[in-house]
């Protein structure tokens, strides 16, 4: 019973968090339609145009999501993250970051457990840095910035995450088994 209540409250919080922003924007539109209907109409047309432009890449995003969900399971990410040492450890943690999906909050408990088990903080930092590379969102990114830019950005983001991992390795003084060398 308590667990049902707890789940209910989590869902309520989630729904509020998801809808508070769009509902606030809609309220602004509501007010504008009353005081400046012409400009509000212009704004809604502009939004509509933007939505039409993004519709095709957004459909691709959904298809990529299905493919990734079909082949990648959370167990794969858990098997990669924090395993191995040296270059292998970095590659595995970076891979785990790239293929991980969902909000970062969902990953904190697992990262905490891994840190307590002795997985080096630098590998956790590499994982977090690589969350910026989202394969299923690439169609949207390419539609805005072009594939050359996206390709370069992905490479430098991965390299940058290793740089951040190195900084964490040097500045966070914990030296268990699997740290960057």
């Amino acid at each position: 019973m308590n667990s049902d209540k707890h789940l209910g409250s989590i869902w309520k919080k989630r729904i509020v968090r998801l809808f508070v922003f769009p509902v606030s924007v809609l309220l602004i539109y509501g007010i504008l339609f009353v005081i400046m209907p012409d400009r509000a109409l212009l704004a809604i047309r502009s939004s509509g145009k933007l939505f039409l432009i993004i519709l095709m890449p957004l459909s691709l995003v959904f298809i990529l999501m299905v493919i990734l969900n079909l082949f990648l399971k959370p167990t794969h990410i858990a098997q990669c993250l924090g395993k191995g040492t040296g270059i292998k450890g970095i590659i595995l943690s970076a891979t785990a970051g790239v293929i991980s999906m969902g909000p970062i909050y969902a990953w904190y408990p697992m990262l905490k457990t891994l840190q307590e088990k002795g997985v080096d903080s630098s590998l956790i930092a590499v994982f977090l840095g690589n969350r910026a590379v989202k394969p299923f969102l690439l169609p949207i990114m390419i539609s805005y910035f072009g594939w050359t830019y996206v390709l370069i950005l992905v490479v430098f983001t991965i390299l940058g995450s290793i740089g951040v991992g190195y900084c964490v390795d040097v500045l966070v003084k914990e030296k268990p088994a699997n740290h960057l060398k």
């Binding site: 504008l32 809604i44 939004s47 509509g48």
Partner: peptide
């Protein structure tokens, strides 16, 4: 959130 962002950008444009 995405719909909110679209609507907000529309407001910005106008």
């Amino acid at each position: 959130i995405l719909v909110g962002v679209f609507l907000l950008i529309g407001l910005f444009n106008a």
